[in-house]
């Protein structure tokens, strides 16, 4: 690793007992000074949260502000490339014990990793990364699509829809991408069992079961 982390205040010591979360330590870290970029974001969008997680800048933004923030980041801040979009199901950790940020607590979170290649502007800028974490409500399970801001989000959001069941409003073609089209359930959800999947073959359902034969699966 090139950037040795001398102090990671939110780290539990290695020998600590399972599951005990040090909230005092978490709150202490959230008071660290924001970086210029985070201060900029917070100044323009007052209702977003931010934190520095392992020397990486993270912005926590609600679904209502996401599109506006995304357009601004791409246009004004030169985050030309969206590197990756993924999601996390925090079913077991609604309190977000893994982060320092203690704002809105929802079951899902869409995670957008952005990259500024350092191209635009007057040149000579350092490349930067920024991560957006978007809390997504369990009942609504909707999030605006970023496919028209960063086209890469198109396949990535299909994957999230497929594996988590989060619906992206405004997505041009929201269909399953990895699982079969007639699959039931969303496998990467935490409440999706890992050992109950029967082997299925397309078209098998119409076929009558073999006489006295063993059941498939």
């Amino acid at each position: 690793m090139t950037e040795p982390e001398t102090n990671t205040p939110d780290s539990l010591s290695l020998g600590e007992v399972d599951g005990v979360v040090d909230f005092a330590a978490s709150e202490a870290e959230s008071e660290t000074a924001p970086t210029p970029l985070l201060a900029d974001v917070a100044g323009r969008f007052p209702d977003v949260g931010y934190e520095v997680s392992h020397e990486q800048e993270v912005v926590i933004v609600g679904v209502d502000t996401l599109l506006e923030l995304a357009e601004w980041l791409r246009g004004d801040q030169h985050f030309d490339m969206c590197v990756d979009v993924t999601a996390v199901d925090y079913l077991d950790h609604w309190d977000r014990s893994m982060g320092t940020w203690q704002g809105e607590r929802t079951r899902f979170e869409v995670v957008v990793n952005l990259l500024d290649l350092g191209l635009g502007g007057d040149g000579g800028r350092r490349p930067r990364r920024l991560r957006l974490r978007v809390p997504v409500d369990e009942e609504e399970c909707r999030c605006p699509s970023l496919a028209f801001v960063w086209p890469l989000a198109d396949p990535a959001e299909r994957e999230i829809y497929d594996l988590f069941g989060i619906v992206f409003d405004g997505h041009p073609d929201l269909t399953r991408i990895l699982m079969p089209d007639d699959w039931e359930g969303h496998p990467l959800r935490k409440d999706y069992g890992v050992s109950r999947i029967p082997v299925t073959f397309r078209g098998d359902r119409e076929r009558p079961a073999p006489e006295g034969g063993a059941e498939r699966g």
Binding site: E16, G19, V83, D84, D92, V111
Partner: peptide, 30 residues
Amino acid sequence: PAGETYVAIESPKGELGCYLVSDGVPPAYR
């Protein structure tokens, strides 16, 4: 330790990234 991070390396084909979320106990949370 609990936390989340994204690490990217230059694989032969491009940017290979790993987004890791830990909740403090061994299996990676995500």
